[in-house]
Design a binder for these strands. Structure first.
Lengths: 196, 196
DNA sequence: TGTACATCAGTGAACGCGCGTTCACTGATGTAC
DNA sequence: TGTACATCAGTGAACGCGCGTTCACTGATGTAC
């Protein structure tokens, strides 16, 4: 009956990660605490440490899931669209909708800062690049003559502008744009960025 | 010799605030701690509480100074300029330059979240509105036919887009735009937002 | 198949640190008469 | 001007809480012979 330990271990690993995701969703980054995760997953504190080196590793794992969810949503949203501007709009709205539907998961991506010299894991970096690649692809279609450096810069600018609109709309301290005007403003922004 | 106590008290108040600003500048939001502020200002922990109700009140005071610094820089930067787009570019570059020159003070504005139900002080809110008013004024010149609600929405969108570019450029996790391309991208963004 | 030992998953009390906050106290300044 | 008392600025040890992390331990699973 070999493999029982492995199966148990994998289930525990999965349950702990699920609990962490749920806590991030419910209470934001600060709610992802070792004791809370352990309790929610149905294990003890020590077990969490058998699967994740520390709290940062766990949060990074949660953020990796969030990034891949966004990537998947973007893939689905652009499927079948051919016009570059329509595709860019679909990407922007997907990003906005995801952020609004999953405020805490989305904030977790940007609120989590590693202390000191620790590096962002390569996997995470790749996911970020993947999101930018969605945008870069469309901009290349719109501006075929642009060289690679300019394209990379322009891609980040466009992402940054859309990201800014999403950020500000989620901050209550800036009395937010109303529910209805937000998509209108997003379309305006993408149109202008695309030169239309 | 009346007024000695008042003068001492005012000086202490000022020194504590100065120490808090210096700490925020040097080490970011998390460096603004009661003990650190007290030590830097040359007083004891208890004295800080004689002048500020709690750590949040002190941080809010620091942020108020930062906001007014930005506002003053914007006023100076637009002086003498008449073209609305030139003025918008000057505002955007002032914002970018301030953030790059005072990363920690600038981050403090957005990283500080009040726990629970506490409200953002009215003074703070007014300063935010003041910054938006700078932009709104120029957009009104560019789009005189726009009604107030649309103008308010558009103003926030433009601020948000510029804010996003500044935010992303300060994040090292997105390999930043190089020193040189950043102003170019900022000009591009403002031109496009202005419809040029 | 059975025995002895090694390895693993899981436990949870205890440690340690950071840090905001309190409060009884001291000495200086202000005020009333 | 002098005395007695009140008020204020400033002190810093101590409290309390949150929370990440450790580690000696238990029982189950795996392995060697």
């Amino acid at each position: 009956m070999a493999g029982v330990q492995k199966a148990k271990s994998e289930e525990t690993h999965r349950r702990i990660l699920e609990a962490a995701v749920a806590l991030m969703e419910e209470g934001g980054l600060n709610a992802v605490q070792i004791r809370a995760v352990a309790a929610k997953a149905g294990y003890s504190v020590g077990s969490v440490y058998k699967h994740y080196a520390d709290i940062d590793a766990l949060i990074i794992a949660v953020n990796a899931i969030t990034l891949s969810q966004i990537r998947d949503a973007m893939t689905a949203a652009t499927e079948g669209l051919t016009d570059p501007v329509a595709r860019l709009k679909a990407l922007a709205h997907t990003y906005l909708d995801f952020a609004r539907a999953n405020v805490n998961l989305w904030r977790g991506l940007f609120d989590h800062h590693l202390a000191g010299a620790r590096e962002i894991p390569e996997e995470h970096r790749q996911e970020n690049i993947a999101l930018l690649a969605f945008i870069g692809q469309e901009i290349k279609t719109l501006e075929p003559a642009m060289d690679d450096a300019a394209l990379a810069a322009r891609t980040r600018t466009c992402f940054a502008a859309v990201h800014g609109l999403v950020t500000i709309s989620l901050e209550d301290r800036f009395i937010g744009l109303s529910e209805d005007t937000l998509p209108v403003e997003m379309d305006f922004l993408v149109d202008r960025l695309a030169g239309r």
